[in-house]
Design a protein around this nucleic acid. Structure first.
Lengths: 153, 153
DNA sequence: ATAAAACCTCAACTTAAGTTGAGGTCAACA
DNA sequence: TGTTGACCTCAACTTAAGTTGAGGTTTTAT
């Protein structure tokens, strides 16, 4: 560990190993995120990565977004509009989380609809129901046409 | 198209192309499912696949399970306990769908919890909240220990 | 009978999100 | 001043769920 902050006693800059330990993300994953442009690092004179403390919030945001099912490429897009040289503010986070919340809502709604269909099937033995997912397997796309015939008439 | 059923006028057996067309699943995917043991086929004298009509329900079941987020390997496990030489009955389907419904419920619950946390963040600006996902990013694992420290004290 | 469409196998390629390892350098500690 | 542990790059491997293509056979339609 290098120099400490005289105020908090915490290291002023973090090595990749320290970030890994504190964030619960593997070193190799941090390297990988860097190649994908999700995070960014300075190098010391020996070419080792040094991160500002704000990296911790950034990777925390990445992890939250991943938990909602957002692919890394979209996370990268969302983060890329923010300047990478200043820490994420709470306003940044609010904007991001509002967007992601909407997407999360959609996913939940889709799964809930499917669950309700499954419930219908369970109750009735399924084979006679019009709204059964086995009869209407492509219902997300229902607006786009009649879809293929999956079961016998 | 080969011989028809004298009753319905529908083909007695289906070629892979017919199954593909009716199920909306690509031929290559049906081949792939066969290699994974999810479906099974007979061959005609020219080595072409021939399926009983019940294949359509089987692939419909596979698709429904996939939509719930169940990986193919688990779908294969679930289907493998059923004899592959008879059509899926509605009782079979009920058992499968009850199991999958439970898993779907769990997924929905997890996402809903995350959404609620996100809501909290949005309302308050996040940084001061104890239950913020940025502060407690590993909350699914909360029972297993304190977890890594992601943000500053 | 012949040509087109459908089918066959097998291998290689794709994307996402990483992980693993080889071969080499740097830093922290005794 | 070692030496050990942390770090570096780069390439290759992993899993899931398929897709694509080459090269060859079968079916179907004319």
């Amino acid at each position: 560990m290098t120099e400490k902050c005289p105020r908090t006693g915490m290291p002023r800059e973090l090595s990749v190993g320290e970030v890994a330990e504190r964030s619960g993300i593997a070193v190799s994953t941090l390297h990988f995120y860097e190649t994908k442009g999700l995070i960014h690092s300075q190098r010391n004179r020996g070419n080792q990565r040094r991160y500002p403390r704000s990296i911790l919030r950034r990777v925390a945001v990445i992890k939250v977004a991943q938990r909602t099912g957002i692919p890394l490429s979209e996370i990268a897009d969302a983060l890329s509009v923010l300047p990478h040289d200043r820490p994420l503010t709470s306003l940044d986070w609010r904007k991001l989380s509002e967007t992601w919340r909407r997407q999360l809502d959609e996913r939940i709604a889709r799964l809930t609809k499917l669950r309700n269909q499954l419930d219908g099937c369970i109750g009735c033995g399924c084979l006679s129901m019009q709204e059964c997912p086995l009869r209407n397997p492509l219902d997300e796309l229902a607006a786009e046409g009649p879809g293929p015939r999956l079961l016998e008439p």
